[in-house]
Write a protein that binds this DNA or RNA. Structure first.
Lengths: 205, 205
DNA sequence: TCAGACCGGTACTCGCGAGTACCAATGCGT
DNA sequence: ACGCATTGGTACTCGCGAGTACCGGTCTGA
């Protein structure tokens, strides 16, 4: 250790550096998100990512061990935030029906709003590699399990859910929403609100 | 034209050649199916496909203009057969409920039976390229539209379907079944029949 | 002010695989 | 039976991009 004054200076320098590094990391992540979403994983080179972020390859490999690691990180952070958003919104509902409706609606709307993240989560991350698959399953699984849990409680007093398998229901909702979103995102003129309403009528009538 | 006899000989020779070619094509398609399913598209090289089929690259490029073309072809043929199977089985039902149940059940069971085809249709073909996406959408769309059509008729006299949007319902079923199958295919110990039954309870109660 | 550590950028290597060109063997018609 | 055409196999090219090594500039600390 040095003198207190030096320590303070050192700390603030380290802190600035930390902030700087974090800022760069964010730039890389957001560039990666954008390019992966619009071109796809295979068609996006590390060179393109760093060029878009106006950085060098060495900066990239300071933060990520490989291109795939970068993709996983993007998926985890952005996908995680999206799902978190959905879950907190859903939690505001006062009963099972309302929570399911809020969750499904928020998911659909969020996918339309952040279509780049949605594309990553629903399309680009499928079938890349086992580890990427794990991340996707984990992220989407959080939503699926929340739905399942809701059903597990609802089935006790709601005839509609009485005969449903919670786990299957959760996965079915996730799959249905994904498919609907990906289909209607490519079909122009689709409206998030009405799509969400149609889905709610199926799963939370 | 030559003499009749020569013509006959020529025809039979041509026919044999045709048959031979078709046989080779089948070998290539089935090798491609197997490898694409177990390793994925990117990880499967043309070299590996022809080695597995005990042929040469030139034979491959006689039938397909590119690796992607080959993939599309496999997807179209095998996926098409699977969907056809589902649709004809479903058509045996005597009312909307029964047809929906038969269709969903057959789809799930067929995916478990032909897990290689299922993997291609549900996982590997996602997000590869625009043209592959078109093929997948077309194939799965046949099922989605059949479901939608069934709903469109059922809603006239069945309260359950009265408020559903047929197009969205069709897509939702496809997505839900895909997700459920892909999830429970990787989770060992899953049973096709009971999974199908759970899904039927959701979409055709 | 100066020496050194460290950061970032550039330029390189290396492997891989799609697609191609050329050659050998087989089978066809005459 | 013989020569020619066609088929099928092999060996090559070519481009691309992930990951790396090294070097020049800058900022820190004494």
């Amino acid at each position: 250790m040095s003198t207190p004054a030096a320590a303070v200076r050192a700390t603030s320098a380290a802190a600035r550096k930390e902030a700087r590094l974090e800022h760069r990391r964010q730039r890389l992540l957001s560039s990666a998100l954008e390019l992966f979403a619009e071109r796809g994983y295979e068609e996006t080179s590390v060179g393109a990512i760093v060029a878009h972020a106006r950085m060098s390859k060495s900066a990239f490999y300071e933060h990520f061990t490989s291109k795939e690691h970068c993709f996983r990180e993007v998926l985890m952070v952005e996908g995680g935030e999206l799902i978190q958003d959905v879950l907190t919104t859903a939690a505001r509902g006062h009963n099972h029906h309302e929570r399911l409706r809020l969750g499904i609606t928020r998911f659909v709307v969020a996918c339309f709003e952040r279509s780049t993240v949605a594309r990553l989560l629903i399309v680009e991350s499928v079938g890349l590699s086992a580890s990427v698959d794990r991340v996707r399953h984990e992220v989407q699984g959080r939503f699926a399990e929340a739905v399942g849990e809701e059903v597990r409680h609802a089935m006790l007093h709601d005839a509609f859910y009485a005969d449903k398998d919670p786990a299957v229901f959760g996965r079915a909702v996730v799959g249905a929403v994904n498919e609907a979103v990906s289909y209607f995102l490519t079909h122009p003129g689709a409206d998030a609100e009405s799509l969400a309403a149609s889905l709610c009528r199926i799963f939370a009538p």
